[in-house]
Design a protein around this nucleic acid. Structure first.
Lengths: 254, 254
DNA sequence: CGTTCCATTGAATTGCGTCAATATGTGTGG
DNA sequence: CCACACATATTGACGCAATTCAATGGAACG
């Protein structure tokens, strides 16, 4: 008898208005009735299992995606068949912008764990954005954040020592978890050491050794993919080039 | 007496409709009367001398810029004061997107030689784009190209040998020059070896040695900042991981 | 309880960074 | 036009950080 009610409830629960990511995702800064219009085009939502692909290299650009939960990696394949990890995508982050330039994807997006995504048809999004300046602005802002993450990534890769990159990686990941309301210090890494290595431009053994070293210095505690940040201050200093030769750092903030 | 005519001519010559970059820049795919509207907001054009900055870190985002000629680098400054070269920008390429995320620039844009730029106020651009779907689409495409260049850059930095990166860099630069109608093989590098090094994540001595090596192998001819690509095929193969131990490569395309 | 995948640890090699000297080029003023 | 100084580029020698190869350890799965 209350089928209709059930459907409405289910529908509502999955709407942008109810989404925990509202303030991070496209709806940010949009008022209630505008939200309805955005919500109408964000109908399709998909669940992906670990290892499933959201899109593949060469797929034409149809939609951009927003991770609701779970995590993705985007990888490009070099001519010798090696995977390069271009980026990791957590909840609230846009996926699929790599096809904006040519209209076809240059990367594949792989779910690192069970994940939900919103599928946002790009042409409809553009149409609505054209009528809602605040949405257009927010779209550019979200694209900008994606650009910023790429730049952070490049800065990691350019002339930083292995241990610095690893510290920077863990610290940045913690920050991103904080933003989506999860613990910034008790991390469960959704990606393998190999993924981390291919992201940081290191050999996987080097990543492993880096984790061990950080643990020995009391900065983090590692249990497989569970990483706890014990000394955020020190982690930050290591990320910014301080050499760790001694568990007790003398140069405190004066 | 013909002052008015002179001004109109000068004005016209600098308009988007007359610009040699038309098909690469924002106007691509826009029809004539739409072009007029775009042209109206792209009034300010600036000339910068070598070393001048288009914007600095922290500057609020007001405009995006398009290089008309000349070249720029965008650099970020790490906490220890070192410059990181985030990207190089040739004619037709958008500069200033780094501020989209936070509304303030994270990089500085430095002219590598005397350069002209179009200054496009972003709020006016958004307003016009909202009314011209083709312009909005083109804006996204140009942003996408910028993203693609960043990804190419990252792929250079991740687990590639020094010589590979250098070959890839030269090859990519040639391609970009080709796109703007210049010779793809007779290059005059607008940037110093140090800039190249900070872009590729190498020591400047390593870059120098790489150039020398490529010259010894007959791939390029180097005269200071003049670089001529002699064997494009081989350069490409070196860029994709082929080891150069011998000037004569035996493994040809079967 | 075994099999498979993933992570850690060790030992040997090497590519690249660092330091240092020299060479080449570029712009300035005499 | 040359001489000078200064910036930029090349080349050499050496050491070390990170890769590679290889083996072991541990967790997750059926």
């Amino acid at each position: 008898m209350n089928d209709a009610v059930d459907i409405d409830l289910a529908r509502l629960r999955r709407s942008c208005a109810q989404c925990s990511l509202q303030q991070l995702c496209l709806p940010a800064g949009i008022d209630a009735d505008e939200l309805v219009r955005l919500d109408e085009i964000v109908r399709r939502r998909r669940t992906l299992a670990r290892g499933e692909r959201l899109f593949r290299i060469g797929d034409p650009l149809a939609s951009v995606f927003v991770a609701r939960d779970g995590a993705f990696k985007t990888v490009s394949i070099s001519e010798d068949g090696e995977e390069q990890v271009i980026g990791f995508h957590l909840a609230g982050e846009l996926i699929g912008l790599d096809a904006l330039g040519e209209g076809a994807h240059r990367c594949e997006a792989v779910a690192l764990e069970t994940a939900n995504v919103c599928d946002v048809p790009l042409d409809e999004l553009s149409a609505v954005a054209a009528q809602l300046p605040s949405l257009q602005q927010q779209l550019l802002r979200v694209i900008g954040h994606s650009l910023n993450r790429d730049h952070d990534h490049m800065e990691m890769l350019v002339r930083r020592q292995a241990n610095e990159r690893i510290a920077l990686f863990l610290h940045g990941l913690g920050e991103r978890y904080r933003q989506i309301g999860q613990s910034p210090s008790a991390l469960r890494l959704p990606m393998s050491r190999e993924d981390v290595a291919r992201f940081l431009g290191l050999a996987l053994e080097t990543v492993s050794r880096g984790f061990t070293r950080l643990q020995e210095d009391g900065v983090i505690a590692v249990h497989g993919r569970r990483v706890e940040i014990l000394d955020l201050d020190l982690l930050e200093r290591l990320a910014h080039g301080a050499e760790s030769g001694d568990p007790k750092r003398q140069r405190s903030a004066s």
